[in-house]
């Protein structure tokens, strides 16, 4: 067929070529970004955690303030435990977490913050009462904290932030024992 082509044969105009390549590159970049997010879901250990704020559940405040920023807690070791009332594995570790809190709360330099991931208020308070939890707790409104920690969407997950606000350790799944929690916290000391 090549022979029969008439002198009118035109190649693809440059502007069209550029448009096509830009479009393709954009598309691949977009998907690449999504892939990158999906395959590196965890916040990076050893890097500072971006600041976020939260509003505590009523009756579960820290130092009596209803709201806080993560950066307010510089100088303290922060353990962020993400849970939900519908999450069965969370129930396994809830008593141990509370037990651990009793050990640390008077020291003042270690803070536990429970973050309740997509839950109903009723379910959340029921859970907190059921396990007699006393450490500070807050709902993860619009999943903001989850997306800042860039975490996988399973519960429970626990994050350990050191005195400088740097992420030290991540635990996926429930803690098996009090000793494990203590060893976990020791990573930031």
């Amino acid at each position: 067929m090549t022979e029969s082509s008439t002198p009118t044969k035109r190649s693809v105009p440059m502007w069209a070529q550029i448009t096509i390549w830009v479009f393709l590159a954009g598309l691949l970049a977009l998907v690449g970004f999504g892939l990158n997010r999906a395959s590196n879901p965890m916040a990076e250990i050893g890097k500072p955690v971006p600041d976020f704020d939260l509003v505590y559940f009523e009756g579960y405040e820290y130092n009596g303030t209803p709201e806080m920023k993560l950066s307010d807690l510089r100088g303290k070791v922060v353990l962020i435990n993400i849970w939900a009332s519908w999450c069965k594995p969370c129930e396994q570790e809830a008593p141990e977490l509370e037990e651990a809190w009793q050990l640390y709360k008077d020291r003042g330099d270690v803070v536990f913050i429970g973050v309740d991931y997509v839950d109903t208020p009723e379910g959340a308070f029921g859970y907190l009462k059921k396990f007699a939890i006393t450490f500070p707790n807050a709902p993860d409104l619009q999943s903001n904290i989850s997306s800042i920690l860039n975490r996988q969407m399973g519960v429970p997950e626990t994050y350990l932030i050191d005195r400088e606000g740097v992420l030290r350790q991540i635990k996926i799944g429930p803690f098996a024992s009090l000793a494990e929690i203590q060893a976990f916290i020791a990573n930031a000391e």
Binding site: A84, S85, W86, Y117, V118, D119, T120, E122, S143, M153
Partner: peptide, 19 residues
């Protein structure tokens, strides 16, 4: 809000029942 792409009215999980 937790399972991907499941409408709330047909979602069989305990969490959805709560919602």
């Amino acid at each position: 809000p937790v399972c991907e792409n499941t409408p709330l009215d047909v979602c069989p999980t305990e969490a959805c029942r709560q919602w």
